[in-house]
């Protein structure tokens, strides 16, 4: 079948099937991952327990007592993705308020000295575009977003920091990320958001989903430090209605 060439199947142990697209980090390929997930969902195949989209792979967790791996592959093979247009997905953009005050952005000074950019130029570059959420992952809904401007791409730090504050905005290579928990980290720290991107007590726990877009909007340090439920509702009313 010609259609199967768009993705390949790989067993991951005895109860996960990986469906892998081309080895490229691209919005087009990731969009296919998202759409394939929706189309498999619409087939309501019994025996599928979870579907986990990542950058260029969809992992299907299945119950081998309910469905055979070959039967599962045969059903998925019938899905045709050749008709996908990028406009098929409605674009959702989440605005994230970010302070770039020095104490929340310890690596901007280094970036400026590496690139010759001024701090304001760096902030303009970082906040002038929106970022596609390729994947929600790691341990607690960390959003992997891109692509950042070529002028602000750097390898990860050689020595990771032991502790990075929750809400910290970071960059590395062509990606940007938000630390959803306090944790060690090797990315460059360039800002901080007061909003809860991840809250284990909310349903759903993450404000972001893969396939969404994220836009960083600069706010003052004072506003960030005094962020409140009122400000949050005003913000959501302004951007996310």
């Amino acid at each position: 079948m010609m259609l199967t060439k768009q993705f390949t199947f790989h067993a991951m142990g005895d109860h996960v099937l990986n469906i892998k697209f081309e080895d490229l980090l691209s919005v087009d390929i990731n969009t296919k991952v998202q759409i394939l997930r929706k189309r498999i969902e619409s087939l309501t195949i019994s025996g599928i327990e979870e579907m986990i989209p990542t950058m260029n792979t969809l992992s299907v967790i299945y119950n081998p007592l309910m469905i055979d791996i070959q039967e599962l592959q045969d059903k998925i093979k019938t899905i045709d993705l050749s008709d996908i247009k990028n406009s098929e997905e409605e674009k959702t953009t989440i605005h994230i308020p970010v302070t770039f005050a020095d104490e929340y952005a310890p690596d901007i000074a280094w970036i400026c000295s590496e690139t010759g950019l001024t701090k304001n130029e760096f902030i303009d570059i970082l906040t002038s575009k929106d970022y596609y959420v390729y994947m929600i992952g790691f341990i607690a809904a960390a959003p992997y977003m891109g692509d950042t401007d070529e002028r602000i791409r750097f390898p990860r730090r050689k020595t990771p920091r032991v502790k990075v504050k929750k809400g910290t905005i970071s960059i590395a290579e062509k990606m940007t990320n938000i630390y959803t928990l306090e944790s060690p980290g090797g990315w460059h720290l360039v800002g901080w958001t007061p909003i809860d991107v991840f809250n284990c007590r909310k349903s759903p726990p993450s404000r972001l989903k893969s396939g969404y877009y994220v836009k960083y909007d600069p706010i003052s340090k004072e506003m960030a430090e005094n962020w409140s439920e009122n400000l949050q509702s005003e913000w959501d009313e302004k951007w996310h209605q």
Binding site: M12, G13, V16, N18, K20, D23, L24, L25, I52, T54, M55, N56, T57, S59, I61, M135, G137, Y144
Partner: peptide, 8 residues
């Protein structure tokens, strides 16, 4: 290295 994917 690979492009990050799911780990079970």
């Amino acid at each position: 290295d690979i492009l990050s994917d799911y780990i079970c």
